[in-house]
């Protein structure tokens, strides 16, 4: 198929940036979106133009590195997938496709479609862990039975890949879904309960300091999340936060 790509080009963090048009031919439905981008880049390189910079790595939807805003949706029109798993069969011959970076104050653009998501890491550094040393001298893994239901819920929250689609989709650029997924995982498990209060207060504080917006319950994040992380997690985090703030 033939496509008309409109891609955000920005040479550096200080550059103003603009949308540029690139026609492309010979795209087939079995190609992934990023393979289509590879094809474009190889053509650009061989014709002496500068290729489009974009983040990607595992290309199987789990590393969370790819991050394109396609036709106004994080990771494009398909549901439950990242951009690397989006296939061109979701588009039609002759389509115009708009490709932009994540846009959020806390995710500054580095170049073209590449943004800086280190704010997510800094939130994790402030409390996204259980304070246990890796000595191996812990109790036997089966000494604390955990109800299957709790373990399953914790697992579902823990499947967050930290891609930032929730922030990109939110009109307030809020990171509540991301932060609440980690808070939920650890507060559902006995191992994480010991420091639950401190964790939620510290992580929320860092989230605010990094310049993420507030949550106004529009639910866009849940719809666009490639891993189906549920809004319930935000509700759980709000309860944990309230508990922590009142009893501190």
């Amino acid at each position: 198929m033939k496509l008309n790509l409109k891609i955000w080009r920005q040479n550096g963090p200080q550059d103003k940036g603009e949308m540029k048009t690139y026609p492309i031919d010979g795209v087939d439905g079995d190609m992934s979106f990023l393979e289509m981008m590879d094809m474009l880049n190889n053509q650009l390189v061989e014709s002496g133009e500068s290729p489009v910079a974009f983040d990607h790595d595992c290309r199987e939807g789990i590393c969370g590195m790819c991050s394109l805003y396609i036709n106004g949706e994080a990771h494009g029109p398909d549901r439950g997938v990242t951009t690397c798993q989006l296939h061109m069969r979701k588009f039609n011959d002759g389509d115009t496709i708009y490709i932009e970076p994540w846009r959020a104050k806390a995710f500054p653009v580095i170049k073209d479609l590449v943004v800086d998501r280190s704010s997510f890491d800094r939130i994790m550094n402030s409390g996204g862990f259980v304070s246990v040393n890796t000595s191996g001298n812990t109790v036997d893994a089966n000494s604390i039975p955990i109800p299957k239901d709790d373990a399953d819920k914790a697992f579902e929250a823990a499947t967050c890949i930290g891609c930032g689609a929730c922030v990109a989709s939110c009109k307030n650029a809020s990171a509540m879904l991301f932060v609440s997924a980690k808070v939920s995982q650890l507060s559902l498990l006995p191992q994480g309960k010991v420091e639950a209060k401190e964790r939620v207060l510290n992580m929320v504080q860092t989230m605010d300091d990094e310049g993420f917006g507030n949550c106004t319950n529009t639910g866009a994040c849940e719809v666009e999340c490639p891993k189906g992380i549920s809004l319930e997690n935000i509700a759980r985090m709000n309860r944990e936060y309230l508990k922590g703030a009142l009893t501190k």
Binding site: T134, G136, I144, Q191
Partner: peptide
């Protein structure tokens, strides 16, 4: 043991 202590949801 270590991973369970860290909160890995096996």
């Amino acid at each position: 043991d270590q991973c369970v202590a860290q909160g890995v949801p096996f």
